[in-house]
Design a protein around this nucleic acid. Sequence first.
RNA 1: CGCGGGGUAGAGCAGUUCGGUAGCUCGUCGGGCUCAUAACCCGGAGGUCGAGGGUUCAAGUCCCUCCCCCGCAA
Length: 313
Amino acid sequence: MPEPIIVFMGTPEYAVASLNALEQAGYPVAAVFTQPDKPKGRGGKVQAPPAKQWALERGIPVYQPRRIRDDGVEALRALQPDLCVTAAFGQILSQEVLDIPHMGTVNVHASLLPQYRGSAPVNWALIHGETVTGVTTMMTDKGIDTGDILLQKELAILPQETAGELTGRLALLGGELLVETIGKLLDGTCPRTPQDESNMSYYPMLTKQMGLMDWSKSAHALVNLVRGLNPWPCAYTPSPHGTLKVLSARAEEASGAPGMVLEADDKRGLLVACGEGALRIQSLQAPGGRAMAAHDYLRGHPMDMGSRMTEEG
RNA sequence: CGCGGGGUAGAGCAGUUCGGUAGCUCGUCGGGCUCAUAACCCGGAGGUCGAGGGUUCAAGUCCCUCCCCCGCAA
């Protein structure tokens, strides 16, 4: 068939990777739907989402309906798309929206479906200590990440990798897989497999509250929490000096009462006992401050060995 | 005008309330000690206190303006 009219729906950097892949593969994007600009910066400055910036730089029309299934339907219909592509759009599509493109809507999801459905698959995979993940292209249907699987590609997770880093790599992989998927859809050779519902898992959106570190857990579990929530919302813990964001840490062999400070000097750094093993905090961030290495922080905020990371004061 | 925290030596901080010699920990340089050290002792260098203006006999500190960093809001 001739060149399809593709309408893209996506919002963050993760979506831009797919836009770049489409562009490089020679698939023109007819329009971009993205979330409305939101006040982001300090002082109430609004900022355009990355996908919008990408489109504006190329003179591609941008649509920012508050809810596409309410006030974006007519605009989408008018574009007469053959195919819609979504990647971290941040809005749920109604059946009415899904019915518009006759080839359907392809979603680029950052997990090996049916595992890790939901809006934060990368974070949850890391929190659970997975060593392999991947990306899936799928036909979007009315459920959340429940549609038929088209193509999948695995990716090994690096030992110290954070959610931000892994998301970046998955986004690139997702772009490649998207191009491959569209090619096969166009020539009719794309496989299409229903998801195995008995093997599915779904995890919710991230909240700041999830980042509270429970020192009775194992050091490995806490390392995974720290990695999985970086760069947002980040793991945090109370401390003798107030709440600290823990940005990176690794597990060590040591023991003590959970939450007790085992080492705290500016040479060796900060070691805290966990329910199993101990957590070596490598970098952290205090309220109002910038991120810094634990030993830098300790120079100006000396901490006694034996104090607890459970209460302030 | 959305709210709040911050900028002081290479690093991390105190000092600002109530103006009166620029401090602490670490690093660094030199010397010493020890079988030994991320150990210890002695000595030194290193600061336009974010920028500009104002008040004052005197400003890191008080007043005004501006710049930059960080948190809240996913």
